[in-house]
Design a protein around this nucleic acid. Structure first.
Length: 807
RNA sequence: GCCGGGAUGGUGGAAUUGGCAGACACGCAGGACUUAAAAUCCUGUGCCCUUUAAAGGCGUGCGGGUUCAAUUCCCGCUCCCGGCACCA
């Protein structure tokens, strides 16, 4: 058996492909139908491409290749999300400018990607750190500002003491910094904030126009977490201001026995002179978000001295202060109904407050066990005009009543918070704003964009929360774009997400200097047909970029007919180390794609990655299975190369149906990202054909199968195409079609069951009638044996599948 | 607690609308080639009973149900993974 020399094959075609680099070019306005296949662009770290990148991108590449060969005008671009902390840290350590490090890293990444034979259209490469790219990132920010969706405010924000920067709510996971894992603290800082909450409803409803899988939709809906209820005003006894609360259960108003406000609530400042209250408030302010939620079992609190008046019955109820009420949600104040809310219940038990049930449970309910919270069953009691109703109906009635009395309105709340948009770091897009004593915050004039990052001596972030840019006086000091007076530039930079929010639009027109992309091109290419990415971005990048896109849609700068940027989202899976643990340097279980490719060949790596398991699964690296794939590729190579002169003119019937079945199944599987089964079917083909006489197989059919393999193993397929004497390149061929007739005529062996047990087999073809099959089945010797002396009670024939006889 | 997804041989995983469970691959066992090993090739491989074979029994997390037929549908659970969570 002639061994294949994968090294030689790789370098040979690598060279040939480089000189024919328009192989994968996407053509604007082509008459072919477009297909925009997008895979998340990477952060070009100094470590190079890791196996997760290789996996994800191979998956996207196979899909793009399949669509391209199927006749679509495929856009499959790549770029660099290059602003970020690792590069900045590298600069701090070495003094080398981040842009230089970025250049080196992107060059390495690009090389690796070419080595792995990803079919990107490199003529559309983008880089978020290019000033002619981030010009438009800045432009988008100015538009947000102009539309009142970006504002600067001093307020306590999440702060990572390790990264020394502010964090968006989405970047705090379990109370820790999403990037470095340090416990997030609170810090009072003046920050740019983007009002993503204005789009909360649309971010939910827009999902209906997409074809995202359930889990992605659910993650976003959960994160936004819309709730409906009412805002109710309570008078405060002996005080002229009212206390506004948000509740989802206004039906339980008669059961409200006390009120609770957050320690940050305005009312607290009225009584802060009380030493007990002062101490409580200070202690809870010291706690981080993490500590507050960790301590959630034991409730704490202090009585404010105030009483509120319940608008439904004029009862006076005490107002307490407790940090289980969040200042950031609703109004920062609640009415407590301990009989029907577990948290209120716990608080009441701890401080000996009254518990008044206003809903009678259908079944016996013991209030010693906790609160009764069901809205859908039970019956209102002790509630005046609501008495007798089901709680969920009572809600509508009481909201109407509150409105008539002018003490409450229907209200909606979200878990989603506004987006903290300032970062106190060097390596990011400068926020294009200028502060003027006279005019306040003024955006830079559009013609003066981009505001380029100035050179600095020191890249270190500071503990004070000031960006390193603040030290460059000649850059900071400028003139006001409005009045021309002296003014200062904003020194904070944008979060990473700013550049990646809209990059998929720039691919469509990467060199445009009049706008971020030409409308005609946008209209041709948008929306993204399939977006391949990771679940870790479901509530970060994916949510942010949908928001920014919706905003651009409102501006009218993206096509009216495309309200959502991504039609379909495909989640990719995760590759674990050989020990089934997440790969990490400290565990020493990291698999480096280059090394595996060096040892086994690129096609083996690609095909193995796709064969490991379902594309969206979590799978452990296993060198044994990889060797199995290697065997397959080598066997396939030998099958074609060694028999190239022995293949016949025409397939035998058996081979013909195998070939057609393979084309059909492989195509269908690839179209739904079922790569593991697609490869299994190619293996089946080889197993089936390996033992057959080679003259039974036509060269035409072999060519078709080579085309099928080309999406997984582009090098081997190109070599085999050449060996078969075909013209370069295999990758610009059309995807093979299968012959429906050859599948129809195929005789199929199906099982004959008697009383649920398989007792025989019969060969049927598609056109056969039930009677014909019946005759065939009962004439089978084995079947006859089992039917002896029995009468057929029922005969069932499921065409092409099974015969069942009940006796 | 709420939401989403799972549980199939020794292992990774396959199974259109309910239709022969275990495709494909790994591993394992036996054999061929070899002085030997590696590589390669061939054969077997869900479990149990059985000397072997035939025949049978049991099998898709657990308990019920519908059906000629259930991994698939329905009811009730257990456990695992992911998201959210003192969100009023």
């Amino acid at each position: 058996m002639s061994k294949m020399d994968s090294k030689k094959i790789e370098s040979k075609w690598q060279e040939k492909w480089a000189s024919a680099d328009l192989l994968y070019k996407a053509e604007d306005f082509s008459k072919k139908q477009k297909k925009y296949v997008l895979v998340e662009f990477p952060y070009p770290s100094g470590e190079g491409l890791h196996i997760g990148h290789a996996f994800t991108m191979t998956g996207a590449d196979v899909y793009a290749r399949y669509q391209r060969m199927s006749g679509f005008n495929v856009l499959f671009p790549m770029g660099w999300d290059a602003f970020g902390l690792p590069t900045e840290n590298y600069a701090i350590k070495t003094g080398i400018h981040p842009s230089k490090a970025t250049d080196q890293n992107t060059a390495t990444f690009k090389n690796q990607m070419k080595q792995l034979a990803f079919s990107f259209d490199w003529t559309r490469e983008v880089n978020t750190t290019d000033s002619n790219y981030y010009k438009w990132t800045q432009w988008i920010f100015i538009k947000l500002f102009e539309k009142g969706l970006a504002y600067k405010e001093e307020k306590p924000i999440n702060w990572c003491p390790s990264c020394k920067t502010g964090l968006a709510n989405e970047e705090v996971v379990d109370g820790k910094c999403e990037r470095c894992g340090a416990v997030a603290t609170k810090k009072n800082l003046s920050q740019w904030i983007v009002k993503i909450t204005d789009y909360a409803d649309r971010l939910i409803s827009g999902l209906e126009k997409t074809n995202f899988i359930e889990k992605v939709k659910a993650a976003q809906i959960n994160w936004i977490d819309r709730s409906e209820g009412a805002e109710v005003d309570f008078e405060i006894k002996g005080f002229d201001k009212k206390l506004k609360v948000y509740t989802t259960r206004p039906d339980t108003l008669w059961g409200a026995t006390f009120m609770v406000v957050a320690p940050e609530h305005w009312l607290v400042s009225e009584v802060i002179s009380n030493p007990e209250i002062k101490q409580y408030v200070e202690e809870s302010k010291k706690k981080s978000e993490l500590e507050r939620s960790e301590l959630q079992k034991e409730k704490t609190g202090v009585f404010s001295g105030f009483y509120a008046i319940n608008p439904v019955n004029n009862k006076e109820i005490p107002i307490w202060i407790s940090d289980f009420v969040l200042s950031t949600y609703g109004t920062g104040a609640i009415m407590a109904v301990p009989a029907h809310d577990q948290r209120d219940y716990d608080f009441a038990k701890k401080f000996g407050l009254e518990i008044i049930p206003v809903i009678k449970s259908k079944t016996e309910w013991n209030y010693d066990d906790g609160a009764y919270t069901d809205v859908n069953t039970g019956e209102m009691i002790n509630s005046d005009f609501l008495t007798g109703m089901v709680p969920k109906d009572a809600i509508a009635k009481i909201i109407k009543w509150l409105g008539e009395k002018g003490v409450g309105v229907k209200a909606v709340n979200y878990h989603l918070r506004d987006w903290i948009f300032s970062r106190q770091h060097y390596w990011g897009e400068p926020i294009p704003m200028v502060h003027c004593e006279k005019c306040g915050w003024v955006p830079v004039k559009e013609e003066n964009l981009p505001i380029e990052l100035p050179k600095v001596e020191k890249y270190e972030p500071t503990d004070t929360g000031e960006s390193p840019l603040a030290n460059i006086e000649e850059w900071v000091n400028t003139t006001c774009p409005k009045c021309g007076g002296s003014a200062k530039r904003e020194t904070d930079t944008m979060p990473n997400w700013a550049g990646s929010d809209w990059y998929f639009l720039r691919y469509l027109d990467p060199d445009n200097d009049k706008s971020f992309a030409d409308m005609k091109k946008l209209e041709y290419w948008m929306p993204v047909d399939v977006y391949v990415g990771g679940d870790e971005h479901n509530t970060l990048h994916l949510l942010y970029s949908r928001f920014i896109y919706q905003f651009l849609w409102d501006l009218g700068v993206v096509p009216k007919s495309v309200p959502e940027p991504y039609y379909r989202r495909m989640s990719h899976g995760v590759i674990l180390g050989p020990d089934s643990q997440r790969m990490s340097k400290s565990r020493g279980n990291v698999i480096i794609p280059d090394e595996v490719a060096e040892k086994h060949g690129v096609d083996v790596v690609r095909t193995y990655l796709m064969f490991m398991g379902p594309f969206d699964g979590t799978m452990a690296w296993n060198e044994n299975t990889l060797v199995g794939v290697k065997r397959f590729i080598e066997r396939f190579y030998c099958f074609v190369s060694e028999n190239k002169d022995d293949f016949g003119q025409k397939d035998s019937d058996k081979i013909s149906s195998l070939v057609n079945k393979t084309i059909k199944n492989v195509s269908e599987d690839i179209a739904k990202f079922g790569y593991n089964t697609a490869i299994a079917k190619l293996m089946e083909f080889l197993n089936g054909v390996d033992k057959a006489e080679k003259s039974e197989i036509s060269k035409e059919s072999v060519k078709k199968i080579v085309l099928l393999t080309s999406v997984f193993m582009p090098y081997t397929a190109e070599e085999l195409w050449d060996i078969l004497g075909q013209e370069f390149s295999v990758h610009s061929q059309m995807w093979p079609k299968f012959d429906e007739n050859s599948l129809k005529n195929e005789a199929k062996e199906i099982a004959v069951q008697i009383n649920g047990k398989v007792r025989g087999k019969v060969n049927v073809t598609e056109g056969m009638t039930e009677d014909q099959v019946k005759e065939l089945a009962i004439s089978d010797n084995n079947v006859k044996k089992y039917m002896e002396g029995n009468e057929i009670k029922k005969f069932i024939y499921v065409p092409g599948r099974i015969v069942t006889i009940v006796v």
